[in-house]
Design a binder for these strands. Sequence first.
RNA 1: GGGAGCAUAGCUCAGCUGGUUUAGAGCAUCUGCCUUACAAGCAGAGGGUCCGCGGUUCGAACCCGUGUGCUCCCACCA
Length: 895
Amino acid sequence: MELSKNFEPQEIEKKWYSHWMNNGYFKSVPDAREAYTIVMPPPNVTGVLHMGHCLNNTIQDILIRRARMQGKNACWVPGTDHASIATEAKVVGMLRERGITKSSLSREEFLAYAWEWKEKYGGIILEQLKKMGCSLDWDRTSFTMDPDYYKSVIEIFVKLYKDGIIYRGLRMVNWDPASKTALSDEEVIFKDVDSKLYYVTYPFADGSEGGITVATTRPETILGDVAICVNPLDERYKALVGKEVIVPVIERRIPIIADEYVTSDFGTGALKVTPAHDKNDNELGKKHNLKALNTLDAEGKFTSEELEDDLINDTIIGYTGIDRFVLRKKIVEDIDAIGQLQKTEDYKGQVGTSERTSAVIESRLSLQWFMNMKKFISLNPEIASAVAEDKIKFHPNKAKNTYAHWMDNIKDWCISRQLWWGQQIPAWYDEAGNFYVAESLEALHNSQPETRKLQLTQDEDCLDTWFSSWLWPMEVFKGISKPNNAEVNYYYPTTTLVTGQDIIFFWVARMVMAGYAFKQELPFKDVYFTGMVRDKQGRKMSKQLGNSPDLLGLIDQYGADAVRFGIMIASPAGNDILFDESALEQGRNFNNKMWNALKLVKMWEGRIVISDKLEVASNATEAINIELITYNFALEWFEAKLNEVKSEVNEMLNQFRLSEALKVIYSLIWDDFCSWYLEWVKPGFEQPIDKAVYEKTVSFFTSLMELLHPFMPFVTEEIYHLLDERNDDLCIKTGNDISVVDEQILREGALLKSIISGLRDVRNKNQIKPKEKITVHIDTAEVDIYKSIESILAKQINSEQISFVKEAVAGTITTVIGKDKFYIETEQPLNIAGQKEDLEKELLHLNGFLATVEKKLGNEKFVANAKPEVLALEQKKKADAEEKIKIIEESLKGL
RNA sequence: GGGAGCAUAGCUCAGCUGGUUUAGAGCAUCUGCCUUACAAGCAGAGGGUCCGCGGUUCGAACCCGUGUGCUCCCACCA
């Protein structure tokens, strides 16, 4: 079969993915084997695959494929999250394009559109994961609004309500005016903004001269002011406390009060108090018994509904319906016009924005559902201790602190959202305003028959998305809807969770809570936190910057394996990765390298000769024996190298050091296998190859593919099948065991490599043409070792003859490698000065080195305190250095 | 404002228990090669004040202190 010049991934990827699927390799059912379970962090149904998903899912696939090849029952569960805010926003946007407003639709009509949208677009991201080679058990695909899942969420809500953990209350919440819903604290992102500090004077109500000046960043809330507050110790204002001032524009009389909360050295030391629009002001308001006057509606526009009628004047009526930011400018102008604006200063502040819509958050007084987190955690103390005590291990470990800190400072969780897309809150209101919580209306009627007579309407709101996703690891196995079923008992707790650090609070912490609270068990044993994928310059990837590459385009261009390689090779555990397309090129080149190695091996296929064993025959000629010894050396060396790397890789993967493991495999394949081993055993042009060498080579190559497969599944599966006739697939191959490493042969291999490199360097420096053959005379104490590597050495440095000598050979290039002297015969003119310079440079280095060692050994305290093995090592270093120095000095004399 | 982390070659990073040949890898760079698997390649080379300063130690990239510069998390001083 003719193999293409380069590896061509497209067809091969399609072929193998469907082959794996057709054979059901990714399916998992409980059996006697140990389970290895990963639940995929469910992407939003609105999502398209981006670099973050690519990193995250590549890591999961590596772990799951490795587990599968270790003979474990590997189960990786895919799915999507209904993502209430994000999806509802998309659907509203889609409807707007069709000229439909959400408000013109009933809840049922809107949800019909939403489901339609979900069916159409919701699966795209999962299809894209197939292109990456992700070995997910697709039969288990779940959705956080599947009927059973939905019911489970409701059930948990009712349970927590009955336990007194969920409550309803009027609180200051984070209000997103764009999506007109409350948000949890975690959904608010603070951003630095350049704003202004406006100094506004409130004149005294008694008509006396002057007034009190406050500094505010939010003049648009002035109409809701109910007091001015100063620090009780502030000498400037002490006398004014208790006086009344008049709010500009609205002309309301408000008192000056005192509270330690106010810092005297900020602004003017006087604070305007607006309990309806600021969390702190609200607290202050409660403490001092002040009214909260709301002046902004759900969309952040001015409303005068709560203002006293007799204060409403034409100016205020003119403000009606004006957006808060426009209103800010307008009010400032109006205050300036009446001479009460003292000055304006630039000010750097922070504003909270919505994680989903980026709208600036309003603090707003609102009736919402909350979860009492302190109480919840106190009932399930393992939530905090499991992570602290490493029952759940975080990688990197530092995430533990973040988790602990959040737990210690946890606040109540606002779980209601003013949205329709999501699990509707199972609470019903009667006409008197009482509410009843139950799984369903029917359940309510059954448990409280008297409610049958009431006119009940269900709460319009739905639950925070994370109130459903926290059940993910158990409910994908129906752990809530069908408690203790065989599947959940087998797969839960799951093994490893791979996710971004950014959702440690949103999701990871809450899954731990749910695990202990609802199943009395941890949800996973290890959590691998990935960093963020940034661009080459370290910037976050974002649509605005346009620096987010098109992942599918990259897969088309480089192949999925190359993309997986590229994202993994520069991906230190838990740190951000700087994505650079050149890493993908490296991956593509790596594919080609392996492909070309395959081509070489396949070329040998037709010219295999049999020599039964690679053993030195007593009756064979010396030349043949040397050849055999050489083959033996190469085979044994690579065998040892392979085993060494296998065990390193194993250790690294156990520690989640995936990037390092990949680097080690890359180097094993490219350097040790291709550059060294294959060159060593490669027969001359159109020469035969020994059967045993051929078979060993195929077996090595196979092992390499096995080792690499979790990282680069397609190319390895393809090569696996092209190497030999197979009736199995690499994807599910198990038993790539590690044998004992022969350390001695590894040392000899290292020596051989250093001599080859050293002599090639001599050739380069002396401008010996690649085609020119040289003759090498070696002065060494270890002729035996050289005998076993002689023919490899000769071939690798293009030498026609190697001989062993005991003294300098005249008219040759002299060099020293290790403790051996080499004399090279060449047709090129000798560059004595150059050789001298090199030797002297080496001598200088060795002398410097020797000096440091001698200094150590000359230090009595070192000799007295250092461990014996350290001392012995230093002595060996000294002896070695001295020996080498002697050899170089001798060589220098000979020049 | 509080906390965590980072700083090693041009770039991205290893360096795990302080001692393992006066610091390692990949990429990039330079030199020479179209050598019959591979120029998306081969061979070789150069490149470092381990952020500054101070300390502990027989010995420090590693431990401690301090300064500087970055990054992240938490916290609504209007």
